[in-house]
Amino acid sequence: MAAVYKSLSKSAKKVEDTENDNNTTTTNGGFRKNKQRVLILSSRGVTYRHRHLLNDLAAMLPHGRKDVKFDSKSKLYQLNELAELYNCNNVMFFEARKGKDLYMWFSKVPNGPTVKFHAQNLHTMEELHFTGNCLKGSRPLLSFDLAFEQEPHYRVIKEVFLQMFGVPQGARKSKPFIDHVMSFSIADGKIWVRNYEIREVEKAKGEKDSEGNDIVPESDKSSSKKRKGAPNAELKDTDVSLVEIGPRFVLTPIIIQEGAFGGPIIYENKRFISPNQVRSELRKAKATRHNTRVEQVKERLGKLETLTAQAKKEKDVLDTRELFA
């Protein structure tokens, strides 16, 4: 079915291309083709949740290549070679620390940049019982917050997301329809990632059939021309609604390196607190109670000691009590 559709749509596309020559020139000559391949892999020591998130993301990226766990956490530059081996120009690396913290490295491979995130609030598709669903490998619409345009480091991050999560046009396993939105929003200094299904809400039932018939078998010129007029009418009648699919996660940017897993750090988030520090603060706060108690005991014992010492102190010969006893 898919193959049949592909062939049909290809022919339709050809027709369209010939139709408007201006467009084709720009598409072929004006900009280079968007070729992206993402190497998706994790370090050792990931939890099941990290692993499931990785699987979810891998399922969403038809241009992704999942690889086995990477052994090292310190020699990340080896990932560059690995990516080259697999013909990938993006690396999405999940680094798990202490079996609980997840750091995500997003890197453009040959020459950077690299963005390191701390991932929190991970919820995989399976555990979120959302009703949304979409085609596997369909190209998502990428929705970015306006805040992504306001700071240079966010612009870099946006571009990285765009190239990693955006399925390039004509990717090998991609599907021809657009039925989900990935949204990236910035709130509280963190990037919140959501994935929604686009559901068309029809007002009249007849509309849907006509649309379906219109769009799919587009083999001759006349129908494609007709369709061009049609969408406006359709737009008025149908509306879109969103149903969440999942997964959900929140990324805190930590650093941006200029190179791929190396190079000078061109951005460092000073608002980021390492989870280790957070935990230690918590522990310290808890420890204070005990510490104060111990201190009190010490103080009391000290006092007692001084008192006894005073009592034991040898009596002065010239003390009035001694003299007049």
Partner: peptide, 16 residues
Amino acid sequence: VPFAFHQSIVAKKVTE
């Protein structure tokens, strides 16, 4: 470039 090339949309307002 055609929109289908990148399919990315920047919102009109800051979500926060």
